[in-house]
Structure formats: C-alpha cells, structure tokens
C-alpha cells in the first residue's frame, strides 16, 4: 500500500518535472534560431515577416502587472483593514462571502464585462479610436487580483495579537493610528505575500485581457492596444502551424513566462517561510 501512496506523491513531482522539461525542450529551438538577444530584446513581433522579438510583450506584462498592483493593492489593503478591524461583524460576514464570489467568477466573465462596459467607456471618456488598451487590461487585472489581496491581507491583520492594539491604544493612539502604525506593520509579511500572489495572478492571466487589450504587439502605452506574454501565446496558438518557427516561438514565450512565474513563486515561498519562522 505504501508504495502506491508514494507513487501518488511522486506523481506531483513528476508532473512538475514533466512540465519543466517539456517547456525547456520546446522553448529552446526557437530561441536558438532567433538568437537569445534578438528574441528577448527585439522590438517587433510579426509572424508574417518572421520577426519574433518579445520585448513589447515583456514590457506590457511588466507594466500591466505593475499598474494592476498600483491600483489593486491599496484598494484591497484598505478594504481588508475595514473588514478586519472596523466593520461590525454582521457587515463583514456579508461582504466576505461576496468577495470570495468575486474570486470565483471565471476570467472570461471578467473579460466579457470588460469588453462590454469598460472598453466602450474608455473609448468615449478618453476620445480614443478604440478602447481596447493597456489601461483597460490594467483595470480588469486590478479587479481580478482584488479578492486574493483582500482575503490574504485580512487573514494577516486578524492574526495580529490583540495585545499590540491594546498597548497602542493605551498610549493614546487613536484606533486608526493603531491599525495603520501597529497592525499593518505587524502583518506586513502576510500583506507582502498577498501582493506577490496578486502579481503572480496578474502576470499569468490570459483570457480576460485577451478580450480587452486589443492584442496588437505594440510597445506598451496606456491608451494603445497591447499584447502581453500570456496573450502573445494565446492569440496565435490556434493559428500557428505545428512545427513552424512561429509555434516554436510561442513555446519560447511560454518558457520566459514560466521563468517569471517560478521567480515570483520562489519569492512568495521565501516570504511565507520567513513568516512561519517568526
């Protein structure tokens, strides 16, 4: 019996190895043909002209994720403080499941609402020829990372010992000062983990932004149509020929994205480990 269970455990390790190996094997050939430098720093992606530079994709992913974090993290943080500390129990107990519903909504649904509401709204407000843009993607991503930021930060804030709060209040600090100057710093590793998790979510999201970002491989600009690393793969995956350089280049993008994600995960594990040790 033990052998059987060991094999199950081994399966998880095996899958990770399988994924890594296959991504590396299929990702390398295109990079070899194009050249690592030309691939990573080329400014033009045009399959029709056999040009495969993914700098616009990398920058779009970085800017898009940063933008989502800049918008989503403060909103999520303050909402978490409200839920953990300010809200009456009854109110918090209504909002909390509603936020987990927000987390459970499929990403295509976010894409749909973004497409039908946000994109036309941006077009009209900003007088753009089309609302499909980096800005639209950033807003959708910010909404999508909100639930995980809220729930992780809230958990971290709730875990702050009551004694710290009492001590601060007894020193004549107001409740708000106590939340921001004592509770938030005491929960900082949990909140940091929430942010990193949000970054991971944002950089890995494909479908929702495929529906709102326009998907042209421009160098990133807020109001222009852009292509992310993820959508760089998804938009051409169905149309590329098996074995063609184009398809191989998509696998190479996958490899780059995978490396990004592994870095973020390693960072996340580091934070969580430090938290555990304390």
């Amino acid at each position: 019996m033990q052998l059987l269970f060991t094999l199950c455990g081994l399966a998880a390790v095996g899958f990770v190895l399988l994924i890594t190996v296959y991504l590396v094997i299929s990702g390398i050939p295109a990079i070899q043909k194009i050249g690592l430098f030309n691939f990573l720093f080329g400014e033009t992606w045009a399959a029709s002209q056999d040009q495969y530079g993914i700098l616009p994709l990398i920058l779009t992913s970085v800017y898009g994720t940063a933008g989502a974090v800049v918008i989503g993290v403060p909103i999520g943080f303050f909402t978490a403080v409200f839920l953990a500390k300010v809200a009456p129990k009854k109110v918090a107990n209504v909002i909390r499941p509603a936020i987990s519903l927000l987390a459970g909504i499929p990403s295509v649904v976010y894409g749909l609402v973004g497409m039908c509401v946000l994109v036309p709204a941006l077009r009209d407000w900003l007088n753009l020829p089309a609302g499909d843009s980096l800005l639209a993607a950033i807003i959708v991503l910010a909404v999508m990372i909100l639930p995980s930021i809220i729930s992780l930060s809230e958990t971290a804030l709730v875990a702050v010992p009551k004694e710290y709060e009492e001590a601060s209040l007894a020193l004549g600090a107001t409740k708000l000062e106590t939340y921001f100057r004592i509770c938030a710093p005491a929960a900082k590793s949990g909140i940091a983990a929430a942010v990193v998790l949000g970054i991971g979510r944002a950089i890995g999201e494909a479908m929702a932004i495929m529906m709102v970002a326009g998907n042209v491989a421009n160098m990133p600009s807020l109001t222009r149509s852009v292509r992310f690393l993820t959508t760089g793969i998804s938009i051409e995956l169905n149309y590329s020929q098996d074995g063609s350089l184009q398809r191989q280049a998509l696998f190479s993008i996958g490899l780059v994205l995978f490396l990004f994600i592994m870095m973020i995960n390693a960072f996340l594990n580091l934070i969580l480990k430090r938290e555990k040790e304390r």
């Binding site: 994924i19 991504l23 991971g200 950089i203 890995g204 999201e205 494909a206 993820t230 793969i233 998804s234 995956l237 998509l250 696998f251 996958g254 994205l257 995978f258 994600i261």
Partner: peptide, 8 residues
C-alpha cells in the same frame, strides 16, 4: 502555474 502555461 498560470493556465496559459498548462494550455501550452
């Protein structure tokens, strides 16, 4: 791992 990687 994001789902687009799983797709690949």
């Amino acid at each position: 791992i994001p789902s687009i990687i799983y797709a690949l």
